[in-house]
């Protein structure tokens, strides 16, 4: 399964800034609601999280330790 940014519709104010900054076409607006498309090439640039002023989009990191 492709890892996608986490979207909280209740927090979204429909401003659409996330869609305008998305580099890989993973986000689109449908009826003023953000829709996250399954995109294998999401590079986790976090621009959508950066521009979201309501915290509706989140790009959390999985923090993994290498056994050294």
């Amino acid at each position: 399964m492709t890892i996608k940014p986490i979207f909280d519709q209740e927090k979204c104010d429909g401003c659409g800034l996330c869609v305008t900054v998305c580099r890989c076409g993973a986000l689109e607006m449908q009826n003023n609601i953000v829709n996250i498309i399954e995109v294998a090439h999401c590079g986790w640039c976090m621009d959508c999280e950066l521009v979201c002023s309501t915290g509706a989009l989140q790009c959390p990191f999985e923090i993994v330790t290498l056994d050294t």
Binding site: W44, F61, I63, V64, L66
Partner: peptide, 13 residues
């Protein structure tokens, strides 16, 4: 190291 959504701790010390 940042690999997509994974942040790998490569030098814990």
């Amino acid at each position: 190291k940042l690999e997509g959504h994974r942040m790998i701790i490569s030098n814990k010390e």
